[in-house]
Write a protein that binds this DNA or RNA. Structure first.
Lengths: 259, 259
DNA sequence: AAGTGGTCTAGACCACTAT
DNA sequence: TAGTGGTCTAGACCACTTA
């Protein structure tokens, strides 16, 4: 068959976008298989009577999507789909609650100023001079069911007061920004699996030794200095992470529109 | 201070890359703060005597990195660092074994042809006509310690034989490709936390009810039809996932080189 | 009306690969 | 030597925002 496909230069949809979707659909249809070469940039430019720069912009989209790769001097080739780089977005943890139409709420269990113990001194890279930390304990619930237990620490500073707005839904980065003048610019999270301690079980209203996700988060400022730390316990029977990889046909219903 | 910084047009390093790193360093130094506007594209082009298209290519790098965002008609602005989009790469699961200098090995526990039960029929979207599946059971070890237990299924086809190479380190996508003529192009993984059953505990050599990661993977072909499925159990005391987000200062040691 | 970013052109020269 | 992708230019016109 190999029906000719067209590009509408007068469409409000950019030419590079139309061309990218056209090439993508050829790959997703199986007309272009992994390892096969795309037409050269000059060929595509001539065929559609567009500039080579526009062709390159379209191909750049496919390269970003991981569907093709270019080799200088040789050509541009369809990549085999990558299936080993699945990433889990932690976003899901709170997103899924909303997706089910449940009301998410946060309860403040306690807000204290504590002295840093040895573990926290090490986490915050502190010497013994400033061992005072702000310590918040919260519980996340959905429809009166307790789902997660979070303990958050940040360096305490007397100069700035804690605002009432920080008490409603205190996020770690919110606490850091509110009580200090530092801007957290990067974060590190470590996800582990564990079982509930007696304290955690009591707070979550589940049994001891129940499986849970444990996420430890550290916030860093521009100088890469730790400015916040939290340890969160998520009920294993209520949370899961989903990830995808490869050639994903997302919203192909919103295709190219002529006119 | 505001020392002038330069671009070397004769360097082998592309101008757009030099400019991107220059702007990035201004943001990471705090000279440009979140919410503040970058100089206009024309201003930057004039200051460095380069083309506006080259300026746009540099800014495109920063947009991809999430450090700035452009608003048509208004300008380009430094974005506040995103800290809520941490992603966990599953790659770590096998990468960390190598990072510790340990030898990773795979042991084949069994390879059978089985009839699909109700659960597998549903997973593979099968009617009752072709219920035969290839079933592989493997154990992943590092230095004689068993770390993970994997059960893999794919639709069985008599036409293609199972090669010896599939028995050494049988990956799910490898099995699918080997025994059928379909190319898996996308994958979905679901990560959950659980505790070991008696069977799993015995195979991994740990106690019953020990916390574990459970990952269920489904492979799909071009028609979005399931062509492979696996359920893997990872020891909770040996695995963890690490993720980052925000403005990450990666390899700034390999900076711009003049000459 | 003036200024911004978004798209596109028709060239040019370069680095790399193959023959 | 010919052909490929990689970079860059000096314009042009457009859509959008603001005054």
């Amino acid at each position: 068959m190999n029906e000719e496909q067209f590009i509408d230069k007068n469409s409000v949809i950019p030419i590079y976008y139309q061309l990218a979707k056209l090439l993508e659909s050829q790959i997703l249809r199986g007309e272009l298989k992994p390892g096969e070469a795309l037409p050269t940039e000059t060929e595509i430019a001539n065929r559609f009577e567009i500039s080579r720069m526009t062709v390159r912009r379209a191909i750049a989209e496919l390269i970003t999507a991981g569907m093709v790769h270019a080799q200088q001097g040789k050509g541009t080739f369809v990549s085999p789909p990558k299936l080993n780089n699945v990433v889990f977005e932690l976003n899901n943890f709170n997103q899924e609650i909303k997706d089910f139409g449940l009301k998410r709420s946060t309860t403040l269990l306690g807000a204290h100023i504590v002295r840093a113990d040895e573990r926290l001194m090490r986490i915050f890279q502190l010497d013994s001079s400033t061992p005072r930390l702000l310590y918040f304990r919260t519980v996340v619930s959905a429809e009166d069911e307790r789902l997660a237990y979070e303990r958050k620490y940040t360096i305490y500073s007397k100069s700035k007061p804690i605002l009432e707005s920080n008490l409603k839904d205190p996020t770690l980065s919110g606490l850091v920004t509110a009580n200090n003048d530092v801007l957290p610019v990067s974060t590190k999270k470590v996800l582990q699996v564990s079982v509930t301690t007696a304290e955690e079980a009591a707070i979550l209203g589940i049994g001891v030794n129940a499986p849970v996700f444990v996420i430890e988060e550290t916030l860093y400022d521009l100088e890469n200095k730790p400015v916040g730390w939290s340890k969160s316990i998520y009920r294993g029977d209520r949370y899961q992470l989903t990830g995808y990889d490869g050639w994903l046909r997302k919203d192909n219903h919103g295709g190219i529109n002529l006119g």
